[in-house]
């Protein structure tokens, strides 16, 4: 097999994930796009490991070991990411990335600032009662 096939497929998958990360609004859809990008990298690692294990003498199968590590780290990442998204949703009532602008600078800070702490203060005021 030509090495160009998996390399091109991996590049296209990566750019698909890139589009998803930039264009999506829901945080969970952004996490899905991140998974696509990580999988593109995994495909590259596996393809180049198969190529190198034939041509080089001793490669320790580093590509496949790194792929397994990437898969495990991606699993940890998705767990932590979903926990953060759920915590944000519980505090703000939305998982919409466009509305999470508390650290934004410029003229737009006035709007969400009055919204964000206001709602959380209301929640905290309700909590003891």
């Amino acid at each position: 097999m030509h090495l160009a096939y998996p390399a091109v497929l991996s590049a296209l998958l990566f750019c698909t994930g890139l589009y998803g990360v930039l264009a999506r609004r829901n945080a969970i859809l952004v996490l899905m796009s991140v998974e696509l990008m990580l999988n593109a990298v995994n495909l590259n690692l596996v393809a180049f490991d198969v190529w190198l294990s034939r041509t080089a003498k001793d490669t320790l199968h580093s590509g496949q070991a790194l792929t397994l590590f990437t898969i495990a780290i991606a699993a940890a990442e998705i767990g932590i990411g979903l926990a953060i998204v759920l915590a944000v949703y519980r505090n703000r009532g939305t998982s919409d990335i466009d509305k999470l602008r508390d650290t934004a600078e410029g003229p737009e800070t006035a709007d969400p600032d009055t919204e964000g702490p206001g709602t959380s203060a209301a929640e905290k005021a309700e909590a003891p009662a």
Binding site: A27, L82, V85
Partner: peptide, 9 residues
């Protein structure tokens, strides 16, 4: 996990 996340949000 992603489906659970979609449901919980």
């Amino acid at each position: 996990l992603l489906l659970f996340g979609l449901m919980l949000t």
